[in-house]
Computed example of a mutant assay.
Amino acid sequence: MSQTLVSLFSSRRRIKIQPYIYTLLLTSLFLPAVANAADITQQLHYPRQLRVMPEMRDDADTLLRIAEQQLQQQAPSKAVDSLLKALELYYFKNDLKAEGLAFDLLSQAYIQLGRFKEAEDAARRRLAVARDTKDLRGQVFGLNNVGSLLLQQGDTAPAFEAFAEAVSIANSIKEIEGQGLSLSNLGLATARLGDYNKAIKLYENALTYRRQTRDPIALANTYNNLGEAYQAVGDYQNTISTFGYALRLAKMTRDRVNEYRAIDGLVTAHTSVGRNERAFELLAQRLELAKQGQDLGEQLITFESYAQFYEQQGKYQTARNFYERAIVISRTLEDSKKEIYLVDRLTRILKK
């Protein structure tokens, strides 16, 4: 007879997390996906008569290192298997700190698999470990992980509460990295709730801490968030300068995610004020970047952006050509949803 992970953990400690926190990485973070697989509490079993051997800790640590390598090699399914086995061993060794690390990695693995509900469950358990061990820094990052996953799934209000709690804890221990991260995420949730002016203040506050950590990727992410908030309130001067900061930082670190985000923000901003030549230059940069990286997904997005750019100017034949190129890539990627959308846009143009 076997026992599941949920009963296994509840028999030793109760997870003291408020329900409102649970109703990730990420702009543009991530698009929500439905997790159809079984919950991890139904996956992890252990034999009732399992003996705790002296070498068990070494075995668990080895499994953890293997899982890290598997994640780096984009083999998340294998990483899940390794981590579930490691968690069994850590449980019997009563090693909460190691359990916390394993749950962190497990959450990452499920994110790579697109199984966000299970990723959220693992993130909650990592947070529970941090609470049980009174690890305040771990609680800050655990709350941010849970909040990010909730935000991705459209649960904005509980995500806001998680980020707000993270800000409070980070401030209490003066954890600079945690303060910057938590304020930036709280700004993101605030923007999702429609209060862009408040979000701008939160992002600006976050920047004061993120500059101190000298993490250009984190800094570029917050600048992009701030640029999107300025864009939402129609402040195009600040929109352009803020996205410009993000773009320079992203180029410096070869941070492609933030580089694409900054370019997209700048294209929209320049187009909105009639600076079409600059928008065209940026689109050309985007396409070259996507080609260099042999990234078909980003090439598709770029062709679609070109099509929209020319459609707005009434140059329907050129727009049609770019929509057709985007459709070809969507078929190559077997992205039927995107293909249907692009075909609809093309059909509309043909009627003009």
Rank of each mutant, 00 (worst) to 15 (best):
A119N: 05
R320W: 08
R137H: 10
V129R: 04
A35L: 01
I66S: 13
L247F: 08
L183I: 00
N258G: 15
A250H: 05
T318P: 01
T302W: 02
D95T: 02
L150M: 13
S330A: 14
G227M: 01
L193G: 02
D255W: 06
V80H: 03
D295A: 02
Q72D: 13
I240G: 08
T242F: 04
L346R: 02
R248P: 03
L8W: 13
F163T: 03
T4Q: 12
L346A: 00
G274V: 04
D215K: 05
L24G: 15
N145P: 06
D135W: 07
G265C: 04
E281R: 11
D264V: 06
A319P: 01
M56Q: 12
L283F: 07
R51Y: 12
I349A: 00
R192T: 05
F103Y: 15
I111M: 07
Y230W: 10
Q212D: 11
E99R: 07
L247T: 02
Q112C: 01
Q179L: 11
L8Q: 13
Y310E: 06
Q212I: 04
D264Q: 15
G100Q: 09
R214Y: 10
Y316E: 04
F30I: 10
F280Y: 15
Y341E: 13
V140K: 06
S148A: 15
R320E: 15
A246S: 13
T302D: 05
I349W: 02
L300Y: 02
N258D: 11
L8S: 12
